[in-house]
């Protein structure tokens, strides 16, 4: 069965985010004065062929820990849904 996986890679709390703070500093010049706490991450999507949803999740979990994130500085939030991602072509 095919599952579509969406991984959000985020910097762990407390890890400095130079991109986020640069964006945050730029916002007031555009008139956005109330925006705080900007954090920049990555979004990674793929499909997994697995027996069921928990197997798909376990595999995604493992590959996030070993490859897609650097656990020293990053966390991952993993979303799993049944069916190939719409528009995925590869």
């Amino acid at each position: 069965m095919i599952f579509s996986v969406h991984v959000e890679v985020r910097l762990r709390p407390g890890i400095a985010d130079p991109q986020g703070s640069t964006i945050e500093r730029a916002l007031p010049t555009l008139g956005f004065d109330g925006v705080k706490g900007v954090r920049v991450g990555k979004s990674i999507r793929f499909d997994i062929d697995a027996a069921d949803e928990s197997a798909a999740r376990a595999e995604a979990d493992d590959l996030c820990r070993r490859f897609l994130t650097n656990p020293v500085i990053e966390d991952a939030v993993i979303h799993v849904e049944a069916g190939a991602a719409a528009g995925a072509t590869s």
């Binding site: 890890i15 400095a16 130079p18 640069t22 650097n70 020293v72 500085i73």
Partner: peptide, 17 residues
């Protein structure tokens, strides 16, 4: 070496980008 776990820590984008 940090990615391989042979040294601790990680290297991030420079402060100031």
């Amino acid at each position: 070496l940090t990615e391989a776990g042979l040294l601790p820590g990680a290297l991030q984008k420079n402060r100031g980008l």
